[in-house]
Amino acid sequence: MAINPSQRIHRYEKNYSSYRLIFVIVISCILMYQDSQDGYTKTLRTYLSVLAYPVTYVVNLPNNTLKGFRVALSERSSIIDENKRLKKENIQLKSDLQEVYKLDAENKRLYELLDSYPDRQKKFLFADIIATSSVLDRHQIIIDKGSNDGVNLGDAVADPNGIIGHVIRDQVFSSEVLLISDLEHAIPIEITDTGERAIAYGTGNKNLLSIKSIPPNSKAQKGAVVITSGLGGRYPEGFPVGEISELGRKEGENFLTIDLSPFANLEMINEIWVIQTGVTENE
C-alpha cells in the first residue's frame, strides 16, 4: 500500500525534540567549559564518581579474577622459583638498606651542620591501576585509591622504576593520574651529573619527554640520569625520572634540545605507589 505524502506518519517523539537537543548541547558546553577551567564541576565530579564506582568495579572484575586465577593455578615449581628469586632480591635489598642507614645518618649530620632540615615526611600508599584513559591523546590512568584512602590532589605517583605522574583529580574511591608524558604535563627536573635544573615537558609520546631550556654550554651527556628537582613543591625531590636519550643542538636554536626517556614503562603500568608528602597536609 503506497502512502500518500499527506498521510505520512509524523508521530511526535517528545524524547527527541530539538528543544531537548539544544538544551543538552548548552548544558554540555557549560560543563565542558567549567571542567576545563577547573570550575565547580570538580565537586560535582567527586560526587558523581561515587555513582560510577560500581561500574568500574564490575569492569575490572574479569581482570582481577584472572589475576586471582593465575595465582591459584600457576604451577608449584614456578612459585618455588619465584620465591627463590624474591628471597635473593630481598637479601640484596636488605644489604643495600644497611648502607642507606649509614647514608641517612651522615645526611642528617651534614644537614645539622648546615642548620637546615629537609622535608622528610613522606608516606607511600600502594595502589592498583583500574583503567587507562581510552581517550588516546590523553595520557591518564585511574587508580583504585581515592580521597577515602588519603590521596590528596597533586600527590606524585611512582612505579618501581621512577616517577609516572601526579594526581589531578581525587575522587572518593579512585583518583585520576596525569602521566608525565601527557602533552599538558611538565615536571621540574635536575640533571644529576651537572646539577642543572630545568623543566621536562610531555610530548604525547609515552617513551619521550623533552627538555628545552638547557644552555648549549652545558656539560650534560647522553645517558645522564635525570631526577625530580623538587622545585614547585608538587613533586618530591630526588625521585628518578629518566635518562637522556638524545642530546643535540639544532641550527638557530638558543638552547639544546634534549630527549628524555622515562625509566617507568608508561605503556604498561602495574604496581604503583602514591607518594604523600607532608607539605600538602600542612597547607
Partner: peptide
C-alpha cells in the same frame, strides 16, 4: 524510539566521561 531519547543518551555519555576521566560533557554531547 520510545525507549531512548536525547537526554538518556546524554546521561550515559556523562557516565562514560566520568569513567574515562575525560572532559566532563564531551561524550555526553
Amino acid at each position: 524510539v520510545s525507549l531512548m531519547g536525547v537526554i538518556a543518551a546524554w546521561a550515559i555519555g556523562l557516565l562514560l566521561d566520568l569513567l574515562q576521566g575525560g572532559l566532563l560533557g564531551e561524550n555526553a554531547l
